[in-house]
Design a binder for these strands. Structure first.
Lengths: 221, 221
DNA sequence: GTCTATACTGAGATAGAC
DNA sequence: GTCTATCTCAGTATAGAC
């Protein structure tokens, strides 16, 4: 049962990973419909036809790419210290997503491509990962609320989607293009404005709820 | 000089508006590269070839559509009561953008389609409108800051892009799909969380800076 | 200026040799 | 399984009749 895979099998797997890496990068750079299989094949250095030995269609390839990414996010979330307050874990995870985007180019939201979206719903692994992430984050939000670190006058969905949207927010590219701030500063700005907003809070009491010093906490992970 | 246009000329203009309307809706629904000229022609009820009598290319059509939309936004901004505090005008404009999206489907950010982006930069009218909007909103942000209604520890660009990004934020569609809130509630949530954030502000002093009662103000326009 | 018909291109997917 | 070559089709853009 636990035979170690043959050389050819490992080579095959390595190539599949390379395809996923390329797809991940190109999805982030060009988006789903502008990314062609020629691009992928060229970047990996294989023939276009060979891609179909790994994935039956472009949509399936994209779905597998998104699934891998989502699973990594779940993994990252699971790895965060459970001792830390939930609010800090939420911040840290958002910061991690943003730094991932800066590093490799991360696919945008499924909603940008209606065709892809339906394909994702067929992909069981994607749905599983999505549900796992959703369950975990919902629990974190509840916990952060109970700690008094999150507003309790907003529906949980509003809070979750707001964080989710910020992780894909083009503000990142715009600020980067401006060239006036470091990557770490940009991440701090984005995490901070997501949680604290851009409006000035009236006279914060010193050291009360942990909303202060928000930028630094994004580095927690 | 001020001859009123002939019947044929007005008919031509009306058709051009119809083309722009269709392009506006379809860009919002499918995005640039999934929108075909067949779709446009079908929706307007004319032949595909006829579109080229109005616009020399698909990119030019898209650029004209985006320009019209941007000009309308500038117009809306100019029409807001100058007597109102700058922070309320910012809120109102964001609310207007979100309600426009709900009504007609508004094209997403240019950044979603690299090919289109370069075309926009060639389109002089687009750049003019963009600069006009940017100038006006920068002034508003400065004003709102001076009023103490916006954080002054953030760069202006961070504030502006955060608002801009929220106007295109897919959270709108997600909340709508959930079907639990009215359109007005969703707009209020999104404007409110943009300015006030999702974190709970520590012990707000009553009636101090106008950050409270945030949702309702979005209806100001 | 609007229509129908068509040329041309890029890209997803498949077939067949090795 | 991987390659080269090819099929197919959608979609942009153009030509030519009226």
């Amino acid at each position: 049962m636990t035979d170690r895979p043959s050389f050819k099998a490992r080579q095959f797997q390595a190539r599949e990973d390379a395809i996923l890496d390329a797809a991940n990068r190109l999805l982030g750079e060009k988006g789903y419909d502008l990314m062609s299989l020629d691009d992928i094949a060229a970047e990996v250095g294989i023939a276009k036809g060979s891609v179909y030995k790994h994935f039956p269609s472009k949509e399936a390839l994209a779905a597998a790419t998104m699934t891998r990414l989502l699973n990594r996010t779940v993994e990252e979330a699971r790895g965060l210290p459970t001792a830390a307050p939930a609010i800090d874990r939420l911040r840290a995870l958002l910061g991690w997503c943003l730094r991932e985007r800066m590093a490799g180019g991360v696919p945008r939201l499924p909603s940008t491509s209606p065709g892809l979206q339906s394909s994702l719903l067929d992909h069981l692994g994607y749905l599983d990962a999505m549900e796992a992430l959703d369950t975990m984050l919902t629990a974190w939000v509840d916990e952060a609320r109970a700690d008094g670190a999150l507003r309790d006058d907003l529906p949980v969905a509003v809070v979750l989607f707001t964080i989710y949207a910020r992780s894909c927010d083009p503000t990142l590219e715009f600020l980067r293009a401006a060239g006036e701030w470091s990557d770490d500063e940009i991440v701090a700005f984005m995490v901070d404005t997501c949680f604290a907003g851009i409006g000035k809070a009236p006279a914060p009491a010193a050291g009360s709820t942990g909303v202060e010093a928000s930028g630094a906490v994004a580095q927690l992970g």
